[in-house]
Each structure stands twice: as C-alpha cells, then as structure tokens.
Nucleic acid binder design. Structure first.
Length: 692
RNA sequence: GCCGCUGUAGCUCAGUGGUAGAGCGCACCCUUGGUAAGGGUGAGGUCGCGGGUUCAAAUCCCGCCAGCGGCUCCA
C-alpha cells in the first residue's frame, strides 16, 4: 500500500493505489481543483497517474507557493495547448499530418505536414484560434490510454501517418514497452494523438493562448528530408499573463539592436554594399572605438603586443593552415589574379573548369581571410624564438570574411565581414594554464565593466569515443584540465561538454542571450596543437633544443559586430557615459544664450568629451526630448541665469528627477570622474534628487 | 541554401484595379521660450527590381533581390 511523501516531508498512507488527483483531494479540495499535474519521484506526470508504490509526490499547480508561475505547470499547459492547436488545425485543414509538437521555454510549436495544395497561411490563425477556443470551451478531459506495441503500431499504420509511425518506432527503439495516446475527451470518439504526455487534466485548463508565427523545419532536422511547417504558439493560464507576455515581447522588440541601430543611427546595411556587411556610421563607430580603446588598454596591461595584418593572403597559406580545404563552403571564393586568369582564358579554360580549379585550390590566388591565425603564425615564425621570449601574445582587431548562408544573416549578430578581437598566444606547454587564466581574467574585467553578468561558459572537451582529434592524448588531458581550472577561477557557472572541442584542442566558449532569447556565442578561447605543427613553429628551450609551442586562439568577445549588437540590447541603446557616442548635448534656452552655450560646448570638447551643441531655433523642451530620444547621457541646459552664475543646468538620461545647476568646472570634473571610472562615480550624484 | 511572411517619402506606417497619403524628420518663416512635442509654409516617392495580364497595376500573376521568423550549419 503506497506511502506518499509530500514536499513538506509529511507522509500519507493509502490502503490502495491512488491517483495523483486523489492524493490532492485527500489534502484539500482547493488543491485538487488547482492541480494540473503531479511530480512522482521527480518525474512529471498526469494527475490521473495511479501511484501503486511508495513515492515522493508533489502536486503541480498553476502557481508555486510564492505565487510565481510554476514552470512545470506551464510546461504541461503548453504541451496541452499544442494538442488543442493540432486538433483545431486538423479540423480546418483536413489531411494535415502531425509530426512533433513539444513545449518550449516560453511557447510551443507543432511541426505539421500540410497537403501541397493547402499550405497553412498566417491568415488562418484567426480561424484556428477560434476553433481552439471552442475546444477549450468544451473542457474535454485529456484521456491517456496505452496500447501494447503491436496493437499500437497496427493502429498507427491504419491511420497512415508516416510521421507518427516513425515517432512510435523511435520510442520503441528507445526502449518503450507500450505506446501511449491522448484523446481530448473519449478515446475512439474524440480527437487523439500519439503522445508521451503528460498533460493538464482537461482542455478547459488551457486558459489563454495565441498563435505566434509560422516557419518551416525539416523532418528529423534533415534538409534532404520532408519539409514541414512549424506553427508556433504560446499559452498561459490567464489572459492577464498572456497579455503581459505579449507586452514583454513588444518591449523586447524595441530593444532589438536592429531597431535601435537604425533609431540611434549606429550602423547601416545597404543592398548596394552587400548582404551581411556592416557600415559603421559615426555614432556606432564611436562606440566601437571606445570599446576597442578599453580592450587595447587591458591587453597592454596583460603584456599583449598589437599587430596589423592585411585582409587577404595567398591561397597557399590557407592550404598550409588547413582552412581552405576544410572550411571552403564558408569562405568567399578565391581571388585569382589577372595574369593567371588571362592565361587560363587563353588556354580555353571554361567556367566549370575554373570553378573546379578553385575548389581544388589548384590555382594560384588569394583568399579573403577567414581567420587571422595564419598571419599571426607567420609573424611568430618571422624570427627565431627563445623560451625566454615566451609567451608571445599577438593581438589584432582583425577583420575576417566568411560566407554565411543567406538565411543565417542577422543584423550585427550574424554577418559576412567582421572584426574579431583576436589574439594568439604562443607559449610553452607549462605556461598554458596561466595563459588560459589570463584570457579569462580579461573577459571578466571587461564583462564586469559593462555590467554583463548574464552569460554562460561552456568548456568543450573531446569526445572520448571519437578519433578525429589530433595530438598527444596526454597533452589533451593537461589542456582540458587547464581549461576546467581556468573556468573555475572565473567564478561563473560553466558546463563541460564532451565532444564540443575543436579537433585541434579543447576550448572555452562564452554564450549570451539576446533580447528575444536567442543565444549567441560571443568569444572563445581555444587551445591548439595543430597550427604550430602545420606552420612548423618552434622555440629554443633551455636545453638548447627546438620545441613546439602551444597556441591559444582567443577572441573573447567574438566580433565587434556581434558584441556591440549584444551591447546595444544590453543597454537598450542607452550607453554609459564612457561608451556613449554623444556624451553631452548643450542646449541653450534661446538665441540669447547661444554664445554662452558655444563657450560651454567648446570647454567640453576641449576637456575631451564627445559634446554637441543644439543651436536649433526650438524651445528647450523639444531640445530635451530630442536629446532623450538619442539617449544622450547628459543634457546641459544653459540660459541667462546660468550665464550670470557661470553654471550649467543638467538633465540626466534615465534620471529625470536628478536636476540642478553646477559650476561648469565642477561639471567637467565630475564628468571626467564618471568617464574614467566607467560609471562607478556618476556626475549625476552631485545633483539633488527631490525626495519622493 | 530551404520553407513561410514582408518590401509604399529619411523613419514608422495607411492605402485590394481608376493617376499616391498621414505622423515624425528635413528646409524656410514667425516665435526668444528654463527640463520630453509652440505655430505656419514648403520640399521630398521610377510604390524593392524586371517581366506579364488589363483600357487602366502600389494593388492581380511570374521571376529575381533584400529584410524578417524559423530550419540546417558555424573553424
């Protein structure tokens, strides 16, 4: 007879097997009413699941005890909403075949194969939602039943859905002993779907939902396989929560770096220039410049030396490095020089033959560099190195070009030409650990300065079962341990991911989320035993013998494009003073104060600030509004009173109540403090904030 | 690259077969105004590009280009 242990530690005994619902009822009728599912020994189940043995049981309700939305409850809800949506869609589009419909973090989708002559359109959303509302109103119970494998398979075969049949086969392969189905209502009478579950008790619990978007996917994620339509939706228990969520999505859209980039004039992309190529407008260029200045200063502190290398190199170079043969598909095709081209043309070479020659690399030419490493390898190798010179740390804001698939391009976060904050560290195997730590310290310093704490770290290790890795296993072990240690010292949570290492060495990746919740890999720190080999690099050790150095590739912020894209979203475009493209805008109250305004502006510029003067013939209210629209940190208002007193009156972006006047010298000093401290000391602190 | 959606003024968008609109921005004039929009006048568009249907196309059809949402990939 089951002994049920509840989350509070209390134990209840039952004289026969009980369903989770019955457990809830025995605790209280209100709980039973609020219950949407259960967790039995940690596994999420239906409320109707019968518990036959001793177990730890938690009843899942819409809200946790602290009144928060329960994530398990939302999972059940969204999974159930996916069923409701699928039923609605099948009513509207007969012949639509269901494939796979899981809940996600904040929404759900269903992959569906539509008949070719009846694709789903966004215009169908309204009808589907209406149909869904009707199903919800019916408040039919989600009814689970199981069939033995053979019976279940026969049933599925009879229904003729190759996708569901495939799902079932995969379930069997994964060790399932039976197939479970969920009917919304009565099996055999109402709509049903092969499904692992679990679900909320009935369709009536699906409170508020919305179909969000339409996209496509491939069966099994294989582009050569069937193309499916993926219908995204989201669901909440209450209309209020749904509306809140939709509002948040709207808000997020406003923070999107592509939207802000345009509104704040930070960057521009132009059809005539090309897809995935960023034009940094003056304001965006200023942000990048300040950031690079900061990074460069930290690099100097850490003993890096900066280098500059060209944007192209001989094809041969990239054959040596291995980039050309291995990653050809993501490179721009080689550049063949005119002489070569003319000779080939003279020989009657066809386009197809030329393409072939290029593909094989069997031609002289140049490549737009997809990586900076080969050039840096050559700098290292340009003269003999002693162990006393090591580590050699070569840094470059190096621009590289990669042929990303057109469908992948995205604002500044996925582009075809970008500048990496790249560096290569050449060191002895013994120095590897310290150097890795140094890399991570740098990342920490810069993330801290930017107030970025929402990132995760992945340590990519080799897959023990794969033979694709180059180099000595003992060295790998040491390098992997060094990566782990370095990540530990960083003091942020990290995950170890076997199989995620590059073939030439383990790596540490930094991943951040954008406002829409998409994850982007920023930087990476990678150990490399391969390139030094390929370029035959060496140093003379204390023993007088030549040794192979180890290389660390590191671009902790990935690319300036992606990083600043993420930064724009991080700050909602309101950059701190030290990064702001326009730090101060001087706004004379009227023409009468224009001369004084000019004087103040000049003083600010002289003091090294990015200051502008709004000398337009407008009222100060409008000038302030415009300054705020561009998110300028400080608005300096000057009128006759200021002129008389030698002061400036301030308005601080984001702090509309912090107002007041300061002598100009005091303001300049305060700004300098804020700039130099990267915001730790704020000029705004000098202002009286009215008690509220 | 694939699937779907979208493309109208510098920006945001309205316009479903009958000669193209609004708000903001811009220019000029009036206004000289103390912390988020003072008033007026005006300029500005081969309706993404190319083809087709039609007496007539921003609008319907086809192709292409680009953006967006996904899929796949990412040294």
């Amino acid at each position: 007879m089951p002994k049920i242990t509840l989350p509070d530690g209390s134990v209840r005994e039952y004289d026969k097997p009980v369903s989770a619902l019955e457990v809830a009822e025995s605790i209280g009728s209100r709980l039973a009413k609020a219950a949407v599912g259960a967790k039995v020994d940690g596994a999420l189940t239906d409320l109707s699941t019968v518990i036959e043995r001793d177990a730890e049981v938690a009843i899942i309700t819409e809200k946790t005890r602290d009144g928060e939305q329960d994530t398990d409850a939302l999972y059940l809800l969204r999974h159930s909403a996916a069923h409701v949506m699928a039923e609605a869609i099948q009513r509207i589009v007969p012949g639509a075949q269901l494939v796979y419909g899981p809940p996600l973090e904040d929404r759900f989708y269903y992959d569906i194969r539509f008949p070719d002559d009846r694709p789903l359109k966004e215009g169908d959303f309204e009808a589907i939602e209406k149909e869904m509302a009707a199903i919800v109103k019916d408040d039919r119970a989600f009814t689970r039943y199981e069939l033995p494998l053979d019976e279940g398979m026969t049933k599925l075969k009879g229904e003729g859905s190759k996708y569901k049949l495939d799902n079932a086969e995969r379930a069997v392969a994964a060790g399932s002993g039976a197939l479970s189905f969920y009917a919304t209502g009565e099996p055999g009478k109402n709509w049903e779907d092969l499904c692992r579950g679990p679900h909320v008790p009935s369709t009536g619990r699906v409170g508020a939902f919305k179909i969000l978007s339409l996209s496509s996917s491939y069966w099994h994620g294989d582009e050569n396989s069937d193309r499916l339509t993926r219908v995204y939706g989201t669901a909440f228990f209450s209309k209020k929560d749904l509306d809140q969520h939709l509002e948040r999505l709207e808000e997020a859209k406003k923070r999107d770096h592509r939207v802000l980039g345009k509104a704040l004039d930070l960057f521009h992309q132009d059809d005539d220039v090309g897809q995935g190529l960023i034009l940094w407008t003056p304001r965006g260029a200023q942000v990048r410049k300040q950031l690079q200045k900061f990074i460069s200063r930290e690099l100097e502190r850490q003993g890096y030396t900066e280098v500059f290398t060209p944007h192209i190199g001989k094809l041969e170079l990239y054959k040596t490095s291995g980039h050309f043969p291995y990653y050809q598909d993501s490179q721009f095709p080689p550049i063949v020089d005119r002489e070569n081209l003319n000779r080939l043309a003279g020989d009657g070479c066809s386009c197809a033959q030329l393409a072939n020659l290029m593909g094989e690399g069997d031609i002289n030419g140049f490549l737009l560099k997809p990586m900076n490493c080969p050039h840096h390898m050559k700098i290292y190798g340009s003269r003999p190195r002693s162990y006393r010179d090591l580590p050699v740390r070569l840094a470059e804001f190096g621009t590289v070009y990669r042929w990303e698939q057109s469908g992948e391009l995205n604002g500044m976060t996925r582009v075809r030409g970008f500048t990496q904050d790249d560096a290569h560290l050449f060191c002895t195997p013994e120095q590897l650990g310290d150097e890795l730590q140094g890399c991570l310290e740098l990342v920490k310093i810069i993330f801290d300065a930017l107030g970025m704490d929402d990132y995760r770290v992945r340590v990519g290790l080799r897959d023990p079962d794969s033979g694709k890795y180059v180099g000595d296993p003992a060295k790998w072990d040491a390098a992997e341990q060094a990566c782990r240690d370095a990540a530990k010292t960083l003091g942020v949570p990290f995950s170890e991911e076997p199989g995620e290492a590059a073939f030439y060495g383990p790596k540490i990746d930094f991943v951040v989320k954008d406002v829409i919740g998409r994850e982007w890999q920023l930087g990476t720190v990678q150990c490399d035993y391969n390139l030094p080999e390929r370029f035959d690099l060496s140093y003379i050790g204390a023993d007088g013998q030549a040794h192979r150095p180890v290389v660390i590739h590191r671009a902790p912020f990935g690319s300036m494009e992606r990083f600043i894209g993420v930064l724009i979203e991080h700050f909602s475009g309101a950059f701190p003073l030290w990064l702001a493209p326009e730090q101060v805008r001087v706004m004379p109250i009227s023409e009468k104060s224009l001369d004084y305004g000019r004087k103040i502006h000049e003083q600010l510029v002289e003091a090294g600030f990015r200051a502008t003067l709004d000398d337009s013939d407008e009222r100060v209210q409008l000038k302030i509004r415009r300054g705020a629209e561009m998110k300028v940190p400080y608005s300096v208002i000057v009128g006759p009173k200021d002129e008389e007193a030698g002061t400036v009156s301030l308005r601080v972006f984001g702090l509309p109540d912090a107002q007041g006047s300061l002598p100009i010298a005091a303001f300049v000093e305060a700004l300098q403090n804020e700039d130099a401290s990267r915001g730790k000391k704020r000029a705004a602190d000098l202002l009286a904030t009215p008690a509220s």
